[in-house]
Design a protein around this nucleic acid. Structure first.
Length: 279
DNA sequence: GCTGTCAATACGTAGT
DNA sequence: ACTACGTATTGACAGC
């Protein structure tokens, strides 16, 4: 949807944008969050009750994917080793490579290096055991910083993936192809949402500007009408014929035979093609 | 693939 | 310092 399509508003004296441009940008449930659980521990898998809705049918799907099987078999064995590797590879500024930067800060606060390694190990382990052998206790994983970075880089290159690319990326990231696919879906959706928010803001500004301008023009019209009524005809020419349209800054011709002409001919105003005046 | 939604997780902050 | 609460982010899913 191009902005020109959205914001075509003929600016004339009849302009009356009565609608509101307000759109719901966040779903309701997000505003009505119930109090979340405390997570002062990092082992919620063992403490959190099984998720209710989302995980029922999907778990078997996840388990049926051969990639995941392979990864699980291999990685359950090397989980500890791998997480230790990740930790070793990390730079001093990203000592804990998973979760967000904020959680890195949080973990720094938590204390010793040993504790942080434990946390990382536990994370990798719990990530790999997100689905148990019955496939019914999956905890939401958090991608590591490296995984997120790679996904982001990949998204910059192409926002959709063909099956080959998906497989390759999944392998590279040590994730299931389905996870990569879902990540891209979410990423596209959220990029679009952000763009919509930006456009919405522009439209709101545009609407406000046009409303102001309309108000001004209405006022000017009233003044001119009043002037016309109260002034003898012979006094109306030629001075009163010179007036400027504020939207286009064209002068209604003083040579025109019609007094109070705002512009030589009607013209339409598109705020996206004339952003400097209205928006 | 897109959209709407749920739910886990993380963080900030006010109150104690 | 600890806790409770509100809110933002994000992985995952269902339905289309």
């Amino acid at each position: 949807m191009g902005s020109e399509d959205i914001c075509y508003t003929g600016l004339d004296l009849g302009l009356g944008c009565q609608g509101t441009l307000e759109i719901p940008l966040k779903s309701d449930h997000q505003r009505q969050k119930k109090p979340c659980l405390k997570f002062d521990h990092f082992f919620p898998l063992s403490l959190t009750p099984m998720a209710t809705r989302s995980f029922e049918p999907s778990l078997k799907l996840g388990l049926s994917e051969e990639t995941y099987k392979a990864v699980t078999e291999i990685d359950m064995n090397k989980a500890h080793e791998e997480s230790a590797d990740m930790y070793r590879q990390a730079s001093p500024h990203s000592a804990v490579s998973s979760f967000s930067n904020a959680s890195v800060k949080r973990e720094r606060d938590l204390g010793s290096e040993e504790v942080q390694i434990e946390i990382e190990i536990e994370r990798v382990s719990s990530r790999l055991s997100d689905e148990d052998e019955e496939g019914n206790a999956r905890k939401k994983l958090r991608l590591t910083k490296e995984q997120s970075t790679l996904l982001e880089d990949s998204f910059k290159e192409h926002s959709t993936l063909n099956p080959k690319q998906k497989q390759a990326l999944a392998k590279q990231l040590n994730l299931r192809p389905r996870q990569v696919e879902v990540w891209f879906q979410n990423r596209r959706a959220r990029t679009k949402l952000k763009q919509t928010e930006v456009e919405c803001e522009q439209l709101k500004k545009c609407y406000e500007t046009l409303t102001d301008e309309n108000r001004r023009l209405q006022k000017e019209l009233q003044e001119l009408k009043a002037l016309k009524l109260s002034t003898p005809l012979y006094m109306q020419l030629p001075a009163a014929t010179l007036t400027m349209c504020p939207s286009c800054e064209r002068i209604g011709g003083s040579s025109s035979k019609r007094p109070f002409t705002m512009a030589p001919k009607p013209h339409f105003y598109n705020p996206f093609t004339h952003p400097s005046t209205a928006c």
